[in-house]
Simulated scan of single mutants.
Amino acid sequence: MNAGNHSTVTFFILAGLSKQPALQLPLFLLFLQVYIITVVGNMSMIMLIWFSSHLHTPMYYFLSNLSFIDLCHSSVITPKMLENFVNERNFISYPECMTQLYFFSLFAIAECHMLAAMAYDRYVAICNPLLYNVIMSHHLRFWLTVGVYTLGFIGSSVHTGLMLRLILCKANVINHYFCDLFPLLELSCSSIYINELFILFLSAVNILTPTLTIFTSYVFIMASILRIRSTEGRSKAFSTCSSHISAVAIFFGSAAFMYLQPSSVNSVEQGKVSSVFYTTVVPMLNPLIYSLRNKDVKSALKKILDRRVH
């Protein structure tokens, strides 16, 4: 089949999360609420950190970037998913599909590395508290952030570039609720060996490397916490990490389940469930986890609300 046939695929139909008609409206209402909470939560976190001077620290600098990534990540996926629940057939054009794939990959990869940068920040804060402000300087924070987004751009460009070279002609129905890598590969009439190779390689780099960084950081953190003599001191040190550990476990667990295995029909079906976690649930939970379990955020919110009242 020649490359000219590639141009015949001008649009796709997204199969969606569920094919049961009775579930469409309840799922629409559920994920609409999730998306509203996600947007309000992450926008509130960004604005709270921006306007509260005592939150202008390295930890909250990274947290504001995580909230930005979560907001963008969810906005790339959820609106189209909501459209799928109310339309009998959810169409997406080829350029829109490739654009969605690009930005989904960008923000998913960026989130992996931002969580790793946050783990390093917690390591410095607990293991080297006296040098914390010296080590986590504006210069280092800036370049860590640049590195996070650069890795996102590189990974998404590779994934999308390799997808563009394929001839997609088997069908135009994507067995997913968004344009993800494995469901698109199922439509290819040309060899997907290189694509699968790069998916496994980049997934290892962008999932296993940050995971190793986070694990190593927490080994040193736990060792440092165990050396603290007072129970109150240990509790305080651990509380600064508990929110981050929760976010890491949910995000990396669901992402690893989806991408660190060969593509197959079964993995795509199972992957829909895990995809829901890292595309919609995690972006909603992160601001809730970090606000409900953080005294500084609660204090800053209280001060702003008191200022608005008076």
Rank of each mutant, 00 (worst) to 15 (best):
S93A: 11
Y35C: 09
V40H: 04
A15Y: 08
M163K: 02
S243I: 07
M47I: 14
G4P: 03
L106A: 05
T240Q: 13
L17W: 10
S137K: 01
L63G: 13
A237T: 01
F257V: 14
S74Q: 11
H54E: 15
R307L: 06
R308D: 06
Y35H: 12
M59W: 04
E83R: 13
F178G: 00
F277W: 09
T216I: 12
I174H: 04
Q100K: 07
L23Y: 07
T231F: 06
L226G: 01
T57V: 09
E111I: 02
E96L: 14
N286S: 12
I109M: 02
T10S: 15
F62Q: 14
S156V: 00
L71W: 05
S7G: 02
S137V: 01
F31I: 02
T78D: 03
I245Q: 11
H310V: 12
L285R: 05
N128R: 13
E232D: 07
Y120P: 00
L288G: 06
S52I: 03
V34E: 11
L162G: 00
S156T: 02
R122Q: 09
M118L: 08
P26W: 00
I135K: 07
F153K: 00
Y290F: 15
T240N: 10
C169I: 04
D70P: 12
W50K: 15
C72S: 14
R293K: 12
S263E: 12
E111Y: 03
Y123W: 11
F252G: 06
F215A: 15
P79S: 07
L130I: 06
A249V: 14
D306K: 06
M163A: 10
G155I: 00
I154C: 01
A15N: 14
C189N: 10
R122V: 03
